[in-house]
Every structure is written in structure tokens, then in C-alpha cells.
């Protein structure tokens, strides 16, 4: 019968205890090596894998990774709240301004490539490839409500309606696709099924005979047996995304680089520069391991050189 009262007393006591611990903790925080990373969920698998391997080498350095998205991550980065930002696109004008305001100097480093795959349903017999112009015709804002049937894309295709699937408008993947295809980042028709979770798009396209959609090629590679890949023709012939075509640049314009941004302030901590060096020198093997495309060797070397020049310049 005393239980509620007991509960009340215990919790009050515990509360005062937990408040008292604050002082002790602030003191020890500076001693331990912490690296705070935030940003894109697209780059996350690469950074996670690097952090995992880095931990084997440096077990006392705590690397934490958040997934606030490229934009959300830059907000924190420019306030000095994170050391490194994962970015699936280049930093935007407005973010450059925010970083200047926050007094944050930084360097952006390419760590891998990602190919965006264009997919249709397995039962789709008519699509052999899309040209970039056809994709633009489908996705540009003016197409909304007007371009709705397959034969409007190419006259030999059937007179039935298609449905569109794509990543959510807040994602870097969407930004990149619209930039590359429509010509303006973030500008597209609005009448498509959007999901932040690419596995939902996979299910949608696999279950809809008239579907057209796009997402990162890692999701296609895991679902090859239920989806049909549509090669993209940029005027030099139809090309399918693969390790090779993305790396040698022939799968254009739908292959994109992904980045990490490192702040100059953070590089003053030896553990951060150690981590970035480790990242750049292992990025090629790790990227392939988690389903992305490695930088060509030459480019990887030039990114390392770029970082070393920046690190020396502080």
C-alpha cells in the first residue's frame, strides 16, 4: 500500500542525484577524444563503416554519427555543433553564408560516387531505355497533369497512364536528380508518390506495372530480381549504371559525388585529422563494400592532397 509513496520518494531522490552529477562530467569531457559527425543519410553507411574500422585502430576515440540530412547537418556544422558533415551534394550559397556568420572555415572532400538508377516494373516490355530529354519531359514541373501516358513520352509506347515514384523532396537524392534532369535543383512535378524510405519505392515499383521511379543504385542491386533497370541515354548511347560506368563517368548525368565537410576548428584536435586521413585513405575499399562506387584512384589521391594542403594552411 506504500508503493506509490515509495515510488515518489525514490524518484525524487534519484532526480537530485542525477542533477548532482553534472559538474563531474563537464570536466572529463575535454579529456576524451570525441568526433561528432552529422548530415546526410545517403553518406551515412560509408561514414559508419569507416568509423567502425577506425574504432579497431583507435578504440578510445568516440565517433558518433547523426542523420539530420545534408541540410540539417550543415545547420549544425555552421554553428560549430559538429566536426564533420556528411553531404550528398555540394554546400549551397545560403549554407556558405551561414558558415561565414558562424566563423566556420571548412574543406569539402569527395569520398565516393553514387549512381541514381531509373527503374520500371519487371513486366514492362516496352521500355528499353530513356533519353535525358524523355526523363525531363516526364519530371519537369510543366508536365504535371499534362504528360500522363506512356505514348506521350515516346509515340511507340502504349496508350496507358504511368505512375511516378521518387524520393522525398527533402532528400539530397531528389535535389540531385532534379538538378541533373530538370536543370533546377528541387524543381519537379508534384504528382508522384514520394517516400523518404527507398525500400517503399522498391515495393511500389515492383507492384505497379506502369511505374517509373528512381533511387540510389545500391537499392537496385539488392532488388534486381523484382525490378527492371532502364538505361539512360545522354546522346552518346544508352548506359546502365554500374561500378564501371559510374566510375569512368560514362553514366552521366545521373552519377553524383558524395562529400564530407571538415571544419578547420575541428582539425585542431589531432583525433579529427587522424580520422579524416583514415577516411580518405580507406574510402575506396569501404565505398564498394557498402554499395557505393569508389573514386578513381587519381581522384582519391587529389582529394588527399587537397586535405593535406588545407590542414597545413591553418
Amino acid at each position: 500500500m506504500n508503493s506509490v509513496r515509495g515510488l515518489l520518494l525514490i524518484t525524487v531522490l534519484l532526480f537530485s542525484f542525477s542533477c548532482g552529477q553534472k559538474e563531474a562530467n563537464n570536466a572529463s569531457e575535454k579529456l576524451s577524444g570525441d568526433i561528432r559527425i552529422d548530415g546526410s543519410s545517403t553518406v551515412y553507411p560509408i561514414t559508419e563503416a569507416i568509423a567502425e574500422e577506425f574504432r579497431v585502430k583507435q578504440p578510445s576515440i568516440n565517433v558518433t554519427i547523426g542523420v539530420s540530412g545534408t541540410g540539417g547537418g550543415f545547420k549544425k556544422f555552421c554553428r560549430g555543433e559538429s566536426d564533420i558533415n556528411d553531404a550528398s551534394r555540394l554546400i549551397k550559397e545560403s549554407e556558405v553564408g551561414a558558415c561565414q556568420e558562424g566563423g566556420i572555415k571548412y574543406v569539402g572532400l569527395k569520398v565516393a560516387y553514387d549512381g541514381l538508377a531509373v527503374l520500371v516494373n519487371k513486366e514492362n516490355t516496352w521500355v528499353d531505355h530513356f533519353t535525358v530529354e524523355e526523363l525531363k519531359k516526364i519530371w519537369e514541373p510543366a508536365a504535371q497533369g499534362k504528360i500522363t501516358k506512356w505514348n506521350q513520352i515516346r509515340s511507340t509506347w502504349p496508350n496507358t497512364e504511368f505512375t511516378l515514384y521518387g524520393p522525398g523532396v527533402a532528400s539530397g537524392t531528389y535535389d540531385y536528380f532534379t538538378e541533373a534532369i530538370v536543370g533546377k535543383s528541387g524543381s519537379s512535378r508534384g504528382d508522384f508518390t514520394a517516400s523518404e524510405d527507398d525500400n517503399v519505392l522498391v515495393k511500389g515499383i515492383a507492384g505497379d506495372k506502369n511505374a517509373i521511379g528512381f533511387f540510389g543504385m545500391a537499392y537496385y542491386e539488392e532488388n534486381m530480381e523484382i525490378l527492371k533497370l532502364a538505361p539512360v541515354d545522354n546522346g552518346k548511347g544508352a548506359v546502365s549504371p554500374s561500378q564501371e560506368t559510374v566510375m569512368n563517368g560514362s553514366y552521366a548525368p545521373l552519377s553524383r559525388p558524395v562529400f564530407i565537410y571538415v571544419s578547420e576548428e575541428a582539425l585542431k584536435k589531432p583525433e579529427v585529422s587522424e580520422f579524416v586521413r583514415f577516411y580518405l585513405s580507406n574510402a575506396r575499399s569501404i565505398a564498394t563494400d557498402v554499395g557505393y562506387v569508389a573514386l578513381p584512384e587519381q581522384e582519391s589521391k587529389s582529394e588527399i592532397a587537397k586535405f593535406e594542403a588545407f590542414a597545413k594552411g591553418q
Binding site: N25, E29, Y44, E48, N62, T64, I65
Partner: peptide, 27 residues
Amino acid sequence: LAYVPFVAHSPFDEFTVLPMQIFNWVS
């Protein structure tokens, strides 16, 4: 956070929770 390689020792440590981990994995 999505990736935290250590168990928290005090209320002032950074953290992740099960629903975050689940969401990260299913996507």
C-alpha cells in the same frame, strides 16, 4: 544519433534509441 559506439555512462552523454536504430536499418 544513428551511430553511437559506446554505452552511455552519464546523463550528459550522447545517445541513440531503439526506434532510431530500427528506422536506420529498415531504410
